[in-house]
Design a protein around this nucleic acid. Structure first.
Lengths: 177, 177
DNA sequence: CTTGTATGATACAGACTGTATCATATGGCA
DNA sequence: TGCCATATGATACAGTCTGTATCATACAAG
């Protein structure tokens, strides 16, 4: 049933996730679907929680910080481009009027980049990053533009963008010399 | 009728924007609503296009670049915190399965920050910014974290965050000296 | 063999959709 | 004044979806 619901969500959006259609798709009685989830919200919530794993690659420990960050963000961008991005977009829309979805979204959005934060903190202790740097803000500054591209611009995030983002954010020659 | 629809959208979300309810709220016949909009999508699209104006303050010309950017981003953050943020979230969710909404969203997301880009380009020509800077990427790096906070974390964006973001992005002492 | 538990089948009232038809009002124009 | 176009109202219909309820059936554990 969850597989059927997942198909419906990804193909036709949240409003197509219907007890009736799930029953039909899954070859199951409508009553059964209602017994498992009293309303559409709970179906969606289950669905969203399941696909909440934006899989991210762990970069090897020995590489330079910027390289590690690039590797990590690239895999993150790839996850955003896949089915995870759709789920995320759906959640953003639903969260505005559903506190449970909002909580799940917040969790997804903060736990996901946890590995990046860890990587950056290691960069601080190992002297690659200035200790005065606000690490959690830095995480937002690295991830924010990726979300922006995926959710608002709806552009593909190519490797070049990630590279330029990391380069500009971690070693920026902004002011004229 | 659009006012009624707007109320329904902001109070109960896109799925509550119903020909029937609009008719009731607006004191109008259901048939009339159908005559103006054949389906829900067109209602929402009209609604979204109307409130697409994320009003942003123009900073005075004579201030320093960082100050100008801060002023602009603060007013942008304020717009995101208001009704514009809700509309935006709804659009993000809908755009995934509706090409028209996607186009409107893209327009909203690129035109809105146009003033910031202009400000930054002026910063380049006036020597406050290194000419080698990728301005459009810089725009994303400044705005992305704000969208991230509003749409994903759903945190209020206080002035302090904006200030730290601008400081870190425009003059970052990232590497240890 | 019995007792839960999950499921299937079916019914019902109600909301919502999208289309269609016919009547009514209103304002402009000859 | 009379005519006409346009917008609206009232109503109907078939269909989807919702949420609840009831009764029957299958199956596994005790």
């Amino acid at each position: 049933m969850l597989e059927a619901a997942d198909r419906l969500l990804s193909e036709h959006g949240p409003s197509a996730v219907t007890h009736l259609r799930i029953a039909a798709e899954a070859g199951v009685s409508r009553a059964t679907v209602y017994r498992h989830w009293p309303d559409r919200g709970s179906i969606l919530l289950d669905l969203l929680r399941r696909s909440t794993e934006l899989q991210v690659t762990t970069p090897p420990r020995e590489v330079e910080l910027a390289t590690g960050v690039t590797i990590l963000l690239r895999s993150f961008a790839a996850a955003l481009s896949g089915e995870g991005g759709r789920t995320l977009a759906a959640m953003v829309g639903l969260a505005e009027w559903d506190e449970d979805v909002a909580a799940a979204l917040r969790q997804m959005a903060t736990i996901g980049p946890g590995m990046l934060e860890e990587l950056l903190r290691r960069g601080v202790t190992e002297g690659e990053l200035n200790p005065s740097v606000d690490v959690s803000l830095l995480v937002d500054r690295l991830i924010g533009p990726l979300y922006l591209r995926r959710l608002l611009y709806r552009d593909p995030i190519d490797d070049d963008v990630v590279e330029r983002l990391v380069a500009a954010t971690l070693a920026p020659p902004l002011r004229p010399t």
